[in-house]
């Protein structure tokens, strides 16, 4: 279990996911925009450390740090001539894409389905949004698990890309994955419906949500980032 100190309200995490991507894609090349990007790109690894994903945080820093540094530095020094545009462009793309992907990963591993439901219901989102959102979060790990099982089964049978060719390989890889995921979906559906999901009353959820110190800090950092971007 994650230390309580680092736990965020699911809504804080979702807001962070959204704002981070807006900043990464809309911030231009001014000094203020650069600082804003720096602030936002520094938040996910802190969260990862809080979740004890040291390795993931290190890999992220090792990729994004140099990419961002190279982007800002090369645009100012212009040392490579023509190739510079391509290199800086690629570095910029990496430095803008990776934080979003990493943050999405953090969101999936850190938000509990129960907290997501509680959080979204608390801000009066309709069932229409809450139930699919919960199912999506619940099913991402399921698909990964099923996918791994299918890959292992293919290895066991000797169904390699080289043996069967790309089209057949795709079919063997995808069809059992889709089938078993759908079967899990049906079972989930039955188990949920027979436990009263869909009853038209307001459910009280026991999952703990609400502002805690970590939320205040994170929201503060986000506000600072946005502020610098607008001012600078």
């Amino acid at each position: 279990m994650a230390p309580e100190l680092f736990r965020l309200d699911p809504r804080t995490t979702l807001l962070l996911v959204a704002l981070l991507n807006v900043v990464m894609f809309s911030a231009g090349f001014t000094a203020g925009a650069g600082t804003a990007r720096l602030i936002f790109m520094a938040i996910p690894p802190v969260l990862a450390v809080g979740l004890r994903r040291w390795k993931a945080a290190l890999v992220y820093l090792a990729l994004v740090g140099p990419a961002f540094a190279f982007e800002s530095w090369s645009l100012d020094t212009w040392w490579l001539g023509g190739a510079n545009i391509v290199a800086a462009g690629l570095a910029s793309l990496a430095a803008r894409l990776a934080p979003g992907i990493f943050m999405a990963y953090i969101a999936v591993i850190s938000i509990r389905v129960s907290e997501l439901m509680a959080g979204l219901e608390a801000i009066h989102l309709p069932r229409l949004a809450v139930i699919p959102a919960a199912v999506i979060l619940r099913f991402l790990p399921t698909v990964r698990e099923e996918s791994r099982s299918v890959q292992i089964a293919m290895n066991a049978r000797g169904l390699s890309l080289a043996r069967v060719g790309p089209l057949a390989w795709l079919e063997y890889r995808l069809i059992p994955l889709i089938m078993s995921t759908l079967r899990c979906g049906e079972e989930l559906s039955q188990a949920a419906l027979t436990r009263g999901l869909g009853r038209p009353v307001k459910a009280n959820r026991i999952a703990r949500i609400g502002m805690r110190p970590a939320d205040v800090l994170t929201l503060g950092a986000m506000a600072a980032g946005i502020g610098v971007w607008i001012v600078g």
Binding site: L128, V135, S189, L193
Partner: peptide, 12 residues
């Protein structure tokens, strides 16, 4: 509710 769960599963 069943439709909503289906939407979630297929979205994934």
């Amino acid at each position: 509710t069943k439709n909503l769960i289906d939407v979630g599963v297929f979205t994934v």
